[in-house]
Design a binder for these strands. Structure first.
Length: 479
RNA sequence: GGCGCAUUCGUCUAGUGGUCUAGGACGCCGGCCUCUCACGCCGGUAACACGGGUUCGAUCCCCGUAUGCGCUACCA
């Protein structure tokens, strides 16, 4: 399978890109890149009620943000298009007829109401609800009667095999008996295909070699295999990846906080960090390492290292990992560019990445998420550095702090240039001239300059502030 | 309910029938560093769901139980 594998990510455009789907997309992307194959993006919009153009745009945008590039898709075409199911209706129609002709499918005139009523009956008798197959043997007259009455039939697949099994690339052999699979609908009365049918048909037509998806699809697999066999099509490889759970071990949902890629982006996570974190859910590197670049992820990916059990999404670990990426895995230009929106959002006068850069650099080791910029960068844009609390206020009052301030003003008077280095030199001078050192020297300056007891290293802070602002704030601190 | 899948520290995970007194990471706790807070470094805490087998020996193999999740749609 190292030759020309083809994988696909097939989201339905009914909302933002969910984090679980993003992980599925990632696995497909990794497999394609690892084996030197192609990664296809297909839009499954057969649910007309819920599918929207805006969702499709949003999902494409989130994929791009994560850096999961696709080789074929609705926006860029490819030789197996179209890549939107709603544009592939003729294919399904054709296959439907083929299946009917070969006796593998039949029209079903039961209405949704009939079906629901019978389901309730079965349930009431304590039976397992399943389609009773009554339209399987409709006579020609009965069909005509229904049709002339204007009833549009759905199309059902006739399950005939006693059992179906397949070998999953991560879960191993999975078998299911016929009883679990009653005749299922493959095409709705309005001609729109159902998921299982369209998915199978497209996977075949798009020459997908490896179907990689969440393990909530394992039971769909048997139905799809039945159809592949009926059509005498080659069956692709299947790999079912375990689910991602919330902290309460329930399926990850809105209740658990951020669940869409968009939300993580807005919360200040870096795409590479999110990607790295996602890769470690139900997969691990043979090296035991966890901070893995995209290239290494691609290089080391393998189905044999995917675990079979679900994993809990641990936001605290993601936060830590994002911090690692902020402070050591991202170059300053990229970081500044990604940070820019957060300066804007906070209303700070930072108009381009170049302006953001020094601030980001000063804050780098102090934040795990870029969204912390709003809070942590405030000290650089204050009109006045007012002590934030009593403790801070006390720090700048008293003979020693005041002496330090006066020394600072005289040491910086008329200085032609100003940077972090100069500041350090000045501080050394003050220490010598006043004899004050350590916290007694630094803390008053810190509070005078920022109003806070805690914050970034003072050197970079003073450089960003500039000499004038520094002198003004020190001046203001003199009581 | 039925069917399917799963079960190693709180969480993500490594691991093999004996090398496991079970390894790493996050978190947490303690220490060091230090102008503060962080960062970094060092150390500590903590797990093989339970019960039967198989075996000289099971975390690792088999069966059962429990628990969790998924599916059971004219959703995807």
């Amino acid at each position: 399978m190292s030759q020309s594998i083809r994988t696909r990510f097939a989201p339905s455009p009914t909302g933002h890109l969910h984090i679980g789907n993003a992980r599925t997309a990632l696995m497909n992307w990794l497999a394609a890149r690892h084996f030197g194959g192609r990664f296809i993006l297909r839009i499954e919009d057969t649910d007309r009620e819920r599918s929207t153009e805006a969702s499709e745009q949003s999902i494409l945008g989130d994929m791009a943000w994560l850096g999961l590039d696709w080789d074929e898709g609705p926006d860029k075409g490819g030789e197996y298009g179209p890549y939107r199911q709603s544009e592939r209706l003729v294919f399904y129609q054709e296959i439907r007829e083929q299946l009917i002709a070969s006796g593998h499918a039949y029209p079903c005139f039961c209405t949704a109401e009939d079906l629901e009523a019978r389901r309730q009956e079965q349930l009431g008798r304590g039976e397992q609800p399943h389609y009773d197959g009554r339209c399987r043997h409709l006579s020609a007259e009965e069909k005509i009667r229904f049709e002339t009455a204007g009833r549009q039939p759905s199309t059902r697949f006739h399950v005939q095999k006693e059992s179906v099994s397949f070998r999953d690339l991560v879960k191993g052999e999975i078998t299911v008996q016929k009883e679990a699979l009653s005749d299922f609908v493959i095409v709705r009365p309005d001609g729109m295909p159902m998921y299982n049918f369209a998915c199978m048909a497209d996977d075949h037509h798009m020459a997908i070699s490896h179907v990689i998806r969440g393990d909530d699809h394992v039971s769909n697999t048997h139905r799809q295999i039945l159809m592949y066999e009926a059509l005498q099509w080659e069956i692709p490889e299947f790999a079912h990846i375990p689910m991602i759970l919330g902290q309460d071990r329930d399926r990850l949902s809105k209740r658990h906080g951020a669940t869409s890629v968009t939300q993580f982006q807005e919360a200040g996570y870096l795409p590479d960090a999110l990607l790295n974190f996602l890769s470690l859910l139900s997969w691990s590197s043979g090296s035991g390492e966890e901070i893995l670049s995209r290239d290494r992820l691609v290089q080391e990916f393998g189905f044999d290292r995917v675990s079979r059990s679900a994993s809990v999404f641990d936001t605290e670990k993601l936060d830590w990992m994002n911090g690692v990426y902020i402070r050591e895995k991202t170059d300053f230009d990229t970081l500044a560019r990604l940070a820019l929106p957060f300066f804007r959002q906070a209303g700070y006068p930072v108009n381009d990445a170049a302006a953001a850069r020094p601030v980001v650099r000063a804050l780098q080791s102090k934040m795990e998420k870029l969204s912390e910029i709003g809070d942590k960068a405030r000290i650089f844009f204050l009109d006045e550095a007012v002590p934030e609390d009593n403790e801070a206020a006390e720090t700048i009052n008293g003979a020693e702090p005041q002496a330090v301030f006066r020394a600072f003003l005289s040491a910086t008077e008329g200085l032609p240039a100003w940077d972090s280095q100069m500041f350090m030199t000045v501080m050394k001078q003050i220490q010598q001239s006043t004899g004050i050192k350590g916290k007694g020297l630094w803390m008053p300056v810190r509070v005078a300059l920022t109003g806070q007891m805690h914050g970034p290293e003072l050197g970079p802070v003073t450089e960003i502030l500039g000499l004038d602002l520094c002198r003004r704030r020190i001046q203001q601190a003199i009581g």
